[in-house]
């Protein structure tokens, strides 16, 4: 049984083995510590000259990684907590994502920024946020979020392949959104998902089939009455909600899980909504102006889609409290999803 953490760790090692231009930079990432969440464990032992321990200088590091990428390397930058990505916002928005386009597509900038978002560990207001929505809609930035599934044969998908492909196969900046709780989650294969029928699809523009969209329905169940859309670690909570809704409430739903959040595409979600007529988005970031808001806006703009009921589940528009009791009341829970779905069908 592989965890998401192990899958990502293997992907880093494999990417470094595959291409000597891959360089890791980050704070406290050297062995034996191996990074605050251990994702880089073993990398500096395997490739001591290609793992760079850095000062606490996120903005400068992002610039250095961009410069390296512009001159032919494939840097991978670890930002210890997703909350700290605000420190490199200028580098993301005004530098690394602008160069290729404003230089008339004359440069490549292959750079992956990995960072864990998310709460539920009691780390409090500045170490628990899910800030990825701030970076959705930045032209030129690909935002990926793995889910804890690996369905396709020959190990083609899953958190590890998604990261490895981002490092080795893309020539523009990627923000790779990990999640602290997801690290410990087991990566489920088809045999672990006996309750589900699982489909893997790809957006029309994703011709290389790099960014899976997973669609899960309860095996042998009647037609789903509602579409649930989620990403990242919320995929796990939403999957649990789908099972409990089916077995405890006899409410059947389809779960759609994109792994690429930007550029923004609606495939999978749209097709599902076309059948169910109801859509609930689930995210851990704050509710206002978030991913779910954009999904619902775009779906509602499609003529004839037949969206009759829609809602968002997200964190309250509050900082994430440190107290476990308060934190649980601010962040969406499995029960929150179940209760909302019951109101909608």
């Amino acid at each position: 049984m592989t965890t998401v953490l192990e899958a990502l760790n293997c992907a880093l090692l494999a990417a470094m083995d595959a291409d000597e231009n891959v360089i890791l930079l980050g704070e406290d990432i050297l062995d034996p510590y191996g990074g605050a969440f251990k994702v880089t464990r073993g990398c500096s032992e395997a490739h001591p000259d290609r793992v760079i321990l850095t000062p606490i200088s996120e903005a400068g590091l992002a610039g250095i990684a961009s410069g390296m990428a512009l001159r032919g390397l494939r840097p991978v930058l670890e930002i210890m907590f997703g909350d700290f990505t605000t420190l490199l916002a200028d580098q993301i928005i005004n530098h690394m994502t602008k160069f290729r386009w404003m230089y008339n597509d004359s440069v490549d900038l292959p750079l992956v920024i990995r960072t864990p978002m998310g709460g539920r560990r009691g780390y409090g207001p500045t170490h628990s946020q899910s800030l990825e929505k701030l970076y959705l809609g930045v032209p030129g930035l690909t935002v990926l979020a793995p889910v804890s599934l690996a369905i396709l044969p020959a190990g083609r998908d899953g958190p590890g392949p998604l990261l490895q492909q981002a490092i080795l196969g893309t020539n523009s900046p990627v923000l790779f959104i990990e999640n602290k709780l997801q690290y410990l989650q087991t990566v489920s294969g088809l045999s672990d998902l006996s309750e589900f029928d699982v489909r893997v699809e790809f957006s029309a523009d994703d011709t290389a089939k790099l960014y899976p969209i997973y669609r899960l329905t309860i095996k042998g169940a009647p037609e789903p009455k509602i579409t649930l859309a989620a990403y990242g670690a919320m995929a796990d909570l939403t999957r649990e909600a789908v099972i409990r809704l089916a077995y405890e409430k006899e409410i059947f739903s389809e779960l759609v899980l994109p792994t690429r959040l930007a550029p923004f595409r609606l495939e999978g979600i749209l097709d599902s909504v076309g059948h169910t007529g109801a859509l609930l988005t689930v995210e851990e970031g704050t509710r206002t102006l978030g991913w779910g808001a954009e999904v619902l806006a775009r779906v509602s703009e499609i003529p004839g889609i037949g969206l009759k009921r829609s809602a968002r589940i997200a964190a309250q528009d509050l900082p994430v409290p440190a107290s476990p009791v308060l934190e649980a009341s601010v962040l969406p829970q499995v029960d929150t999803i179940i209760e909302q779905v019951q109101k909608m069908v």
């Binding site: 400068g60 590091l61 992002a62 250095i64 961009s66 990428a69 580098q91 440069v107």
Partner: peptide, 23 residues
Amino acid sequence: YSNGVQGGIAPIAVGMALAEKRK
């Protein structure tokens, strides 16, 4: 390479220099 925001180009130049040194 030029960019119009103050300061951000400095670490980029350092990164370029490190890449060239590595080569």
